[in-house]
């Protein structure tokens, strides 16, 4: 078993598509470090075939054309719903998921697509990117009701929790008691605050059992063969739906937290992909509108 750490960044399809946009930014801003590895089976995702994406100041899709994983990179013409990229210097794999999971098949997707991939790549650390917004009432309502926090030191947007699997045996055998599920009488949903240990500045401190992150962690914890896995990190951002490129940028500023890398991995120059053109962007607001338009 390798002692070196191999990380997988996993975006969930969530409010404002912020995790997916963040992965776009990471891949294209660091396109000289990342390379396309392969397309992953997307039976459980909404169908998608698109052209190859590239940075707005680039002339060719370098993530693909300079990939050492492809025998003949020039033959690659299409991108698909689920693609794997690798950064050799930082030992980081990034999965880009371009379409949502089909309703009812999230458990299949996790067990039949993600877990075999995690095994194959011998991943030690998984960082899951998520987002939630004002419409996610289940999360927001519970947050407003709980008064446990000292609000002064809370980050209004970013939350991060860690699930350490060093004692995975104990965790699995005592799974039910360790979970300490609580039921919300209003929604009859169950919540747990014992899987992830959230940082003191996190806005949230629990997850509910209908959230994809709960299902993912449940299946990871219950798979006896994931012997390499040491840690699952969960990062989520509070966002409002709209042009979410700034949220994605904010998420990317936490990249060093996400990949635990000893080498410097801050993105110094953000490069947006050409597919964002006309939809998302970092252009400044015209100064004449700086006070906003109100009626």
């Amino acid at each position: 078993m390798s002692t070196e750490q191999t990380t997988l960044l996993l975006p969930l399809v969530s409010t404002g598509n912020v995790p997916q946009l963040s992965v776009d930014l990471i891949l294209h801003s660091l396109s000289d470090e990342f390379e396309f590895v392969k397309s992953i089976d997307s039976t459980f995702l909404h169908p998608f075939v698109g052209p190859l994406d590239y940075g707005i100041d680039q002339t060719e899709p370098v993530l693909y054309t300079q990939s050492s994983f492809l025998e003949t990179p020039s033959v690659k013409k299409f991108s698909t719903a689920l693609e794997l990229f690798y950064n050799k210097s930082k030992r980081v794999y990034v999965l880009q998921q371009r379409t949502p999971t089909i309703q009812g098949y999230l458990n299949n997707f996790i067990k039949d697509t993600l877990i075999p991939l995690i095994k194959e790549l011998q991943i030690t650390n998984i960082s899951v990117l998520d987002s939630f917004g004002p419409l996610d009432e289940k999360i927001i309502k519970r947050k407003l009701q709980s008064n446990n926090h000292n609000h002064k030191n809370i980050d209004p947007f970013f939350s991060m929790g860690v699930c350490e699997l060093q004692s995975i045996g104990n965790l699995v055998s005592n799974f039910d008691s360790t979970l300490r599920l609580q039921m919300d009488p209003d929604t009859s949903l169950h919540y747990t605050n014992s899987i992830f240990k959230f940082t003191p500045s996190s806005l949230i401190d629990e997850i509910s059992t209908d959230q994809p992150i709960f299902k993912l962690t449940y299946h990871l914890l219950n798979d006896q063969n994931l012997t390499n896995l040491k840690e699952v990190k969960y990062c989520t951002l509070f966002v409002h739906e709209g042009d979410n490129s700034i949220d994605a940028k904010l998420f990317c500023e936490h990249l060093p937290d996400l990949i635990n890398s000893s080498s410097d991995c801050k993105i110094t120059k953000f490069r947006t992909p050409i597919s964002w053109k006309g939809v998302y962007g970092f252009s400044e607001l015209p100064s004449t509108f700086e006070e906003g338009i109100y009626i």
Partner: peptide, 15 residues
């Protein structure tokens, strides 16, 4: 060209 893409049954067949 980005951001065009194909989905639905034809997208699935093409994949």
């Amino acid at each position: 060209n980005p951001p065009e893409f194909i989905t639905g049954f034809i997208g699935s067949l093409l994949y």
